[in-house]
Design a protein around this nucleic acid. Structure first.
Lengths: 227, 227
DNA sequence: CGATCGTTTGATCCGCATCAAGATAGGTGG
DNA sequence: CCACCTATCTTGATGCGGATCAAACGATCG
């Protein structure tokens, strides 16, 4: 049974809500919590897929290095987030992405095989995993569309609103949960471009100064929210 | 039990390989094959999700209309392809995309609820659905990356190679399976842009004249294949 | 044979990447 | 406490790629 103090984030993960502590124990069987210093890799592109991951503390960045040096952040995971869902359901056992800690991070590493076996019994959890996979697919689909049809400024606006909603932050004013360079990488744009958009955001009813963001809702661009 | 002649494409769909005809009958229970004239809608963005679809004959285009008139083709489905997989696994019952026939198309429409119940029994099929969902997620993820880091010409090159591979066409020479405007829409670019890239493709070892494509493999850009 | 649709080609414009300096902040050591 | 350093962010100047507008071309069809 896993050691450690930062255990709550996992047991309280939305993935497990409604389960008894005992059931969670079964599902988390064989899991180990590891510490990762900033830039420390959890796995690399091309590695075999052997574990399912759940973040306890800190932030983990999942990214792809394409042919040239260019690097795109595919996803950003905070406490309670689980990842490698798609990989778990695919047969071919190679990671398509790399994952590394952004700051000091504690992450649980859960062997896939026993987990998959247990999921047969805990249908609720399986359904939630599939559901989040479907949502991920939608999210990426929308991103493709956004990149094709929206300007960088509009993309940033949509992203900020989405961050605000998903992190349950106060729309009236909140601090950016990630560094700007991480955000830029996540949005597939250069840091310079992101920086420039931050001023133009005023047209969309968003003010950014330093790391502080506030919405003073211009009613017009509601579409950006849903994304 | 469904009428019709074009039934084979469904029963031979990779989704069902390995099942007995009787098992397929159970899974296809309640399914109806409908004919759709070109541009005819199967469903529209905002409609409730009630059916799972399998193409018998023809081509179906799944697309999104964003805020303004801009339209992006999310996916193109040919005979044997099934879709609305993600929608089926999501709770919120609204279509995020519209689907319409490209040419004359016959499509089977399968009520979701009974299908989901049956899937409990046919785990193999369920797994395949999840698997294709995971693959779709990957595909879209790669597309996001490509749009951010590659030029239109490179994207087209990658798309053509992927088409060739997935349709099992002869790399030495084949005809485009879709119209150029459909391809452009699928790749999130304008028709004019696609048209211009077709000449530049020679640098990547691809010759296009009219609807005829041939690879004379320049060994260098193998990366584009996998995508 | 003209009409319509899909595709090509040309000209122009705008947005983002890129390169190159500055600015700001956090951290360290003297 | 201040000088220094490095990492992160900002700002400016320039170039390229793709969207857009416009027109010509080609095919299919009534």
């Amino acid at each position: 049974m896993p050691q450690t103090e930062h255990f709550d984030a996992i047991r309280n993960s939305p993935l497990f809500t409604g389960l008894t502590e005992g059931e969670k124990d079964v599902l988390l069987e064989g899991g180990e919590i590891h510490f990762h210093a900033p830039q420390g890799y959890l796995f690399r592109q091309g590695d075999g897929v052997e574990y399912f991951y759940i973040v306890c503390k800190g932030i983990v960045r999942e990214f792809r290095k394409s042919h040239r040096g260019s690097e795109i952040t595919v996803n950003i995971h905070g406490p309670g987030n689980a990842f490698c869902t798609a990989e778990m359901f695919l047969k071919e056992g190679l990671h398509q992405t790399s994952a590394a800690a952004v700051d000091d991070a504690h992450v649980m590493k859960l062997p896939i095989q026993p987990l998959k076996k247990n999921l047969q019994k805990y249908k609720v959890v399986l359904e939630r995993l599939i559901c989040s996979l479907a949502q991920f697919a939608f999210m990426k689909q929308v991103e493709v569309e956004q990149q094709a049809t929206m300007t960088a400024t509009q993309i940033v606006a949509a992203f900020l609103r989405q961050i605000c909603a998903s992190h349950e932050l106060d729309p009236g004013g909140f601090e950016l949960p990630y560094s700007k360079s991480l955000i830029a990488s996540r949005l597939g744009m250069e840091g310079e471009t992101l920086s420039r958009t931050l001023h133009k955001l005023r047209q969309y009813g968003i003010t950014v100064r330093g790391n502080h963001v506030s919405f003073h809702d211009a009613p017009d661009i509601k579409e950006n929210v849903r994304a």
